[in-house]
Design a protein around this nucleic acid. Sequence first.
DNA 1: GTAAGGATTGGC
DNA 2: CCAATCCTTACT
Length: 172
Amino acid sequence: MQRLQYEFFVRDVLEVAPDLLGKYLVRRFPDGYINKYKITEVEAYRGQQDLACHASKGRTARTEIMYHNGGQIYVYLIYGMYWMLNFVTSKENIPQAVLIRGIETYDGPGKLTKALKIDKSFYGEDLMASNRLWVEYGKESSQVNILTTPRIGIDYSGEIYKNKLWRFILDE
DNA sequence: GTAAGGATTGGC
DNA sequence: CCAATCCTTACT
């Protein structure tokens, strides 16, 4: 199937995040083996105002990639042991990203990066140019049922943002 | 330089 | 319930 292009990612994260559900994350491993995984759970992180978004701290070495045009990969380490996989969205200078929290077979942001062998070396990689990680359309209709809930693990982000229904789950 | 804490997970 | 484990950020 066809790889998602820049136009898909260069939109507001609240449009891109739910739209990623049902699409396929494609990984080409170092030995050349290719596997595809249906995306089942994501979260949206939206700009400097969103206190749960890393970019609320401003433009730093870590958040730099989020200020780029959509379609780049943002990876960071959490709790000293788990890599989190994100896709940058929106236009240049608008820091947004979608956290991939679950894919078919591997439920959990830390589990899926471990299974797919994703680490810091993917930071800043382009989803349209990469030969080892990208996203494709599925063959079935894009009609999917979606559940929304508050985001996980961001209780520190204040009343307004911790209650936003910016976690999107594929309802099977 | 130093300290605090995190978009998580698994084990007790 | 709590430790693991290390990078990023802020600065008593």
